[in-house]
Nucleic acid binder design. Structure first.
Lengths: 214, 214
DNA sequence: GTGACGATTGGACGATACGTCTAAGCTACG
DNA sequence: CGTAGCTTAGACGTATCGTCCAATCGTCAC
């Protein structure tokens, strides 16, 4: 329907590429719908006519920003995933790094999912999420299975569990403003994922954590 | 910012309450933004002026629908959760029922999350999600812990893992149109959640499931 | 130096959709 | 039969979109 160019129809000059980033907080504050092109123009200092010169519409500006964040996340997570260690260790690091990323890019991350439905039709952000997030997870899972540090029957199911845990935890944090540090939750989550919640009492006797909840 | 009334400012007559449901597919197809009030009027057969008589705007109509779906989900899941059995059994049933619900209410469910960012500002849908979904999960977890069928250290972390797994699986299905039946994935997910992916080879030797994936 | 071309931008424009409002018709109840 | 509230068509006024044009400016080739 619309051309697949992730960013803009015309190549975006570097100077504008920098300034357009200033649009992110505006989108984050108001959402796609309530954001006026004029707001973006004001916030970025780029005149409205120029914005339209480079972007077909505000959705494309948002898509540009989101795919940028997605690339950032891809870079961050793949760096973390590349560090040495067993698959199990790397998985734990991925979980932590992901939560930290959510904490740092809260508004944008929330935007990513809030507008995923809309923006996904312009860019294949859904696919980008897969590459950025699920793919390193799957890799760590496979590696862990091979090096014996993990035990995976169904890679895709396990990846869904891992990602889901992170996503829900992050979203609770972003939407409901739950308990303090996201990074702190990483251990609790990794624990559950690794040990499971099946009946068999695990090696270390039940060291109670924050049993409470919201 | 806007009053918290979940549905409408005026009490909605039953007859209209029925018809307004016809607006759901319209929203689901187009999203909040692209849906015109006139479209809703046409789809529901309720004149525009009447819509405005009962709802302050289309966002409130959407909020009304979403909270309705949420109530439905609450009912469905709490029914399932109420069935007899160990916490572990009920948890597995919850996972399955939830996935089935997603499969059946695909468009609306997707909408629920696509517009959550926006709608959450009108209604406390985020809180509704918590009640509808997380709360029965937590209950099953606690019960399972007490009856010995589960082993939970951190209820809220475990609940996040469970819900996240379901959510991500469901979303993959809805957005990417992954493999066939959602209900089929329920077992794989429950397996991972219960047994964990930690190295210790589980009691029953690794009965390989669908090791493949996307 | 000069002309050409593309980037840049202010401002005007038509279109669309929103949400408001009015007024007329209708129903129901006392 | 009269009042009150529900219902609805249609007319507005407003906001924002996206398009378009014309003026300006910088750069490059000749």
């Amino acid at each position: 329907m619309i051309d697949r160019s992730a960013t803009a129809v015309r190549p975006l000059p570097d100077e504008l590429a920098d300034r357009i980033d200033l649009a992110a907080p505006v989108f984050a504050d108001n959402g796609l719908d309530a954001t006026r092109i004029d707001d973006l123009a004001k916030a970025t200092g780029i005149p409205r006519a120029t914005l339209y010169y480079y972007f077909p519409g505000k959705e494309h500006i948002l898509a540009h920003l989101l795919s940028r964040t997605l690339r950032q996340m891809t870079a961050t997570l793949s760096d973390v995933a590349a560090e040495p260690g067993t698959g199990r260790e790397r998985l734990a690091r991925l979980v932590r790094a992901h939560l930290v990323f959510i904490g740092e890019h809260g508004p944008t991350y929330r935007l990513l999912f809030a507008e995923l439905g809309r923006a996904a039709s312009l860019v294949d952000i859904a696919a980008g999420v897969d590459v950025a997030i699920l793919s390193p997870i799957r890799q760590a899972l496979r590696d862990g299975h091979n090096d014996g540090s993990l035990h995976i029957d169904d890679v895709s199911a396990a990846a869904s569990v891992v990602y889901g845990a992170v996503l829900v935890t992050g979203m609770q944090h972003l939407l409901l403003g739950t308990s303090g540090d996201l990074a702190n939750r990483a251990d609790a989550i990794s624990n559950v994922i690794l040990r499971g919640i099946g009946g068999k009492p695990t090696p270390r006797q039940s060291r109670r954590t924050t049993t409470g909840g919201t």
